[in-house]
Design a protein around this nucleic acid. Sequence first.
RNA 1: GACUUGGUAGCUCAGCUGGUAGAGCAUCACACUUUUAAUGUGAGGGUCCUGGGUUCGAACCCCAGCCAAGUCACCA
Length: 564
Amino acid sequence: MPLSEQEIVRREKLHKLRDMGIDPYPAAQYHVTTSTAAIKSHFEEGKKVVIAGRLMSRRIQGKASFAELQDGKGKIQVYFNRDEICTGDDKTLYNEVYKKLLDIGDFIGIEGELFTTNVGEQTIMVKNFVLLSKALKPLPLPKTDADGNTYDEFNDPEMRYRQRYADLVVNPSVKDVFVKRTKLFNAMRSFFNEREYFEVETPILQPIPGGAAAKPFVTHHNSLDIPLYMRIANELYLKRLIVGGFDGVYEFSKNFRNEGMDRTHNPEFTAMEIYVSYKDYNWMMEFTENLLEHCAVAVNGGTKSTFGQHEIEWKAPYPRVTMTDAIKQFTGFDITGKTEAELYDFAKSIDIEVDQSMGKGKLIDEIFGEKCEGNFIQPTFITDYPKEMSPLCKTHRENPELTERFELMVCGKEIANAYSELNDPIDQRERFEAQAALADRGDDEAMFIDQDFLRALEYGMPPTSGLGIGMDRLIMFLTNNPSIQEVLFFPQMRPEKKAGVELNEDEKIVFERLKKHQKADLNHLKEESGLSNKKWDKAVKGLTNKKVAKVSKTDDGLFIELSS
RNA sequence: GACUUGGUAGCUCAGCUGGUAGAGCAUCACACUUUUAAUGUGAGGGUCCUGGGUUCGAACCCCAGCCAAGUCACCA
């Protein structure tokens, strides 16, 4: 990639600094005494401070200059005055180093004193400064006016995601989202740890990808010579630990699914799963609403959050609605005791796409997804799902067609999923076998039979309730971001094309000819190459752009020669 | 996977009916010792996403492709 004008200028400055004996990348620790945030919250006129950060803007007015310094906590104005910095006759540090050789984006360390300017801005009067790291690429530089309007915002999503480091430097609100993300994780951890549930780690590389219905990423282990799968879920491993005697285990699990990407799906995403023994899904509902209330307060300072047009109230308790009642409420249709044919006809009558392969459970799920799901804006537990959709969930204690399962809906989307876990090993084996039958019919997302997991269940698993929460979706709701990419530091992107310095075919032809001659008359070489006007023109422009050849004009005509 | 929109200077964007590539900020030079989207004067900076085609001539029109965003479909 050829360097831009501004990048070349910055490299020249780098050399000048070195020539002056200034190391643009010094090794030594820089001892700061404070931060921008601390200065602002405990502002004291005349206080001496040492601070470091990135130079973010400059307003040079001859012998004085205002600039902004940004550190991890925020920004503060700094005042560079020639005679404050250069107390002797040598004014080089201000005139040359500060004015000419520093750039926006450079890291500097500052020693100075606090004061307030005539217009009332809290500022650091610089007494001395050092360069800590030179930036060779100009930052995309938004400007903000007195009313807080931003101009020239760095807002192209593609560039922001590909260069998140630059995005984080120039867009403070981006950083806030990730601060909140970490607060959410910390809040959950402390909630669980207070209750003495145990944080664990389970395999990411799994010989059998279990615990969910999804396409896995496959890889290969060389010395074992076996395929391994990136986990699509960690559920079956956490249950093994319950078998092993832990009363409560949880894990923040990076999961991987080899499926489509869109605004709400990234190939790798984070789920939190927790399993607690001797509990059922009723207990888990209460636990979940208390957890989320706790998290909402920890992240946003209150139980309310805004998402698009909606204000979400996270305060517990949340309504419980059975799937049957939800469908009754939004379609007027009672699914209780209906046959598959009746469900099929009803679904068809309300314009839901159906086909003959769909069983009762799938039909009910379609009706719910199409007509009900989107209506639950405030956190609502939807309970008692049809059995065939939930092969790891215990059969409902009162209705054998249903399971003891709930999902938590917020803004029409699922953010949590929980069961009274199936712990009957024989029932579990039959459910897996039903899945295997689906796989034989071509369902590439049906679950594999995990014999080792069944063996674990045969040793006995206590009654247990488990909960999974989509952490990325939850933080989207808590930070008002409709796109998952905004809550992941580095969302998956198609790789950028390599900027090729290689020559194309036409350029190679010209290059080969030119190597024989070293220097040639432009028109002669053109004829020799046999290229059309347009192709010739492109090829020569390509070669000169890539600094392979250069064209010179003399009294004798136009010549082309290889660059040295 | 389908459709829609977009890709032009470091950044944000204009670019008319096809006729020498534009602005603001940023950069460089000069001036300016409490400014704040600092200001004034001047200058430089381009693979107009890529490859073909039409044309005397393409950023612009046509074809193919790449990348992204959005909508839908699929999928938890």
